[in-house]
Design a protein around this nucleic acid. Structure first.
Lengths: 207, 207
DNA sequence: AACAATAAGTTACCACTGTCAACATTTTGG
DNA sequence: CCAAAATGTTGACAGTGGTAACTTATTGTT
């Protein structure tokens, strides 16, 4: 991960910084990294990063942006994987599982998605756009389900999507923060993911 | 917030530090503070704090601990407020609202509850104990509901409680992180809290 | 009451962080 | 070919968590 030797310029430092930082937080399963160590890992001075990002928060925002895109891709992949099904039920289930899987296997990235330094919509509008794009995948499926007469029509699909998102986010977050576990290894009792999904989607189709 | 003037010793610096730090994060609605500024606000040198806490994380853990206790108190207050009701339905609803209210009105404290530096159960067992004590309030109500034949018997009350906790935590977290709002002021569509609670508890009593 | 032990402050330092300014070099466009 | 712009460099700054060595106050024992 060093620069092209002999060359003064790196070539594509901007992307390299994002990749290296993402790699770090992925390996650490936490969103802690310093700009300086990322620069050093690329064989570049610490100030070089600031030619490409106005601040560390800007770098965080880019990482989060690609994170949301990856998440959306994971959800879409789950949708395609179940596209042979006629009804929407199993697609929703697969998407719920995909969401939680993404959070668990990309703990560092998942945490940056909601980093307090980048939650200001006015400062990072594109970030919130891609966040909404992820949600859009869920909304679309729900609308499809409503058209099929399988999913309850009230509240509307958008509202339903935010509810399901909340639940999935809460489960994933508590899991990453070691407040709940499937095995009950902490103080809280064992919490089955399947039971969780049953419960959430059970409400969806009730009535 | 200065020390008793003229006296070398502060009197009760330990408590004062916790209170001052809590005050800071409450005012900022974020979990950012430095040990040094807290010490300075008490008219004391920065190193004095380290006579009472081995590390900043230890201080965070104490803050989180009292936070969990406050949360449990808020849940119990909701329970008492609805104790004239025969059935458990409205108590659960009130507790759901109390949980979200606590998170919103104590944003800084709520965030420290799940701070990554203190999520290791082995390092801070008492913290996870009080966390579980909060959950216990919910479990008890659910068990009562099951005894009344109102709440579904499967999954068991403990599992149900973690599911509801997940949902509430997700809603509160996304709300604090400005991913969802009741007015739809961001990219995500408006998300009604009442609709959210309807959905969550709807699943509880279904069948 | 005298005095050692301990508790609880102090200053001075360390390595590290984000960020910026001043300077150097490379690439690029006219 | 050269000025302009892009992209790198070093060196500084204030602020951070944390530790060590030192000083002062409190406390318990004789």
């Amino acid at each position: 991960m060093t620069k092209k030797s002999g060359s003064f310029h790196h070539g594509n430092l901007s992307d390299a910084l994002v990749k290296a930082a993402t790699q770090l937080i992925t390996a650490r399963k936490a969103m802690t990294f310093s700009v300086r160590e990322v620069a050093q890992s690329l064989g570049v001075s610490h100030a070089a990063a600031y030619r490409h990002f106005k601040s560390k928060s800007d770098l965080l925002a880019i990482i989060a942006q690609t994170g949301f895109i990856d998440l959306r891709d994971a959800l879409e992949a789950a949708q395609i994987r179940t596209s042979n099904k006629i009804e929407v039920k199993e697609t929703l289930r697969a998407m719920g599982n995909a969401y939680i899987e993404y959070a668990i296997h990309n703990a560092g990235a998942y945490r940056t998605l909601f980093h307090p330094n980048i939650c200001d919509v006015a400062l990072y509008p594109q970030l919130h756009e891609v966040s909404f794009a992820s949600l859009r995948v869920l909304i679309d499926i729900l609308e499809m389900g409503q058209a099929q007469g399988i999913v309850a029509k009230a509240p509307n699909a958008a509202n339903l999507a935010t509810i399901i998102w909340s639940a999935l986010h809460g489960y994933a977050s508590l899991f990453l923060d070691k407040q709940i576990s499937e095995t009950g290894e902490y103080f809280a009792p064992p919490s089955s993911r399947e039971a969780f999904l049953d419960f959430i989607y059970g409400g969806l189709f009730a009535k």
